[in-house]
């Protein structure tokens, strides 16, 4: 029981103190998981993190589930996962409640008009970063363009794209990745 509580608390701290997720959380993970609680070595942690990227879902959450499960089975996985999502739920709900009341104020609306533009720049810069690391061969580019067109222009669900990629990889994966 003590271990479950510790798992919940450690991942609560990680969720509450990291901004943005992804690699930004690695230092926090190291501090709590490796240095403080000694639940894994640094190498194991990086490995968990890598696996978190190869499974569906949020990488931070996947890493939490994995660390928790390794420590205390299913209950541990659930405790760690609930820990990492709890701060988000509390913080976002509070902010959403506040903003509901402030959205009618004119200067708040102006601020958000500017903020939306900043968000565009951030998303495009993320796409550029992703494109640099993920689009290295001609068929990578073809897949990205198809994904974009199918969703942006034809409004199809992204689910179809992901499933189609799985199917295509079974048929052509060996051939194109060996080439």
């Amino acid at each position: 029981m003590q271990l479950l509580w510790n798992l919940y608390r450690a991942f609560f701290t990680i969720g509450a103190l990291t901004f943005g997720g992804g690699y930004a959380m690695l230092p926090m993970l190291e501090r709590e998981i490796v240095n403080k609680h000694k639940w894994s070595t640094n190498e194991e942690l990086l490995n968990y993190f890598a696996i978190g990227q190869c499974t569906p879902g949020i990488i931070a959450v996947n890493t939490a589930t994995f660390v928790g499960y390794k420590q205390k089975g299913i209950a541990g996985g659930i405790a760690a996962t609930l820990g990492v999502i709890s701060p988000s739920i509390v913080i976002i709900v509070l902010i959403a409640m506040l903003l509901e009341n402030f959205m009618d104020i004119l200067w708040v609306q102006h601020a958000f008009a500017g903020i939306r533009v900043a968000v565009c720049a951030l998303i495009v810069s993320s796409v550029i970063k992703l494109a640099k690391s993920n689009l290295k061969k001609w068929w990578h580019i073809a897949l990205a363009v198809c994904g974009f067109i199918v969703v942006a222009l034809f409004g199809l669900s992204p689910v179809y794209v992901v499933v189609a990629c799985a199917v295509l990889s079974f048929i052509f994966g060996k051939k194109v990745n060996a080439a």
Partner: peptide
Amino acid sequence: QNMFSFMRPAVTGLIAAAGFSVL
């Protein structure tokens, strides 16, 4: 590994599409 080598590029396109709608 093959599956993810197909999904990563496509997901890049999907995120670009989502960015497009915010744009």
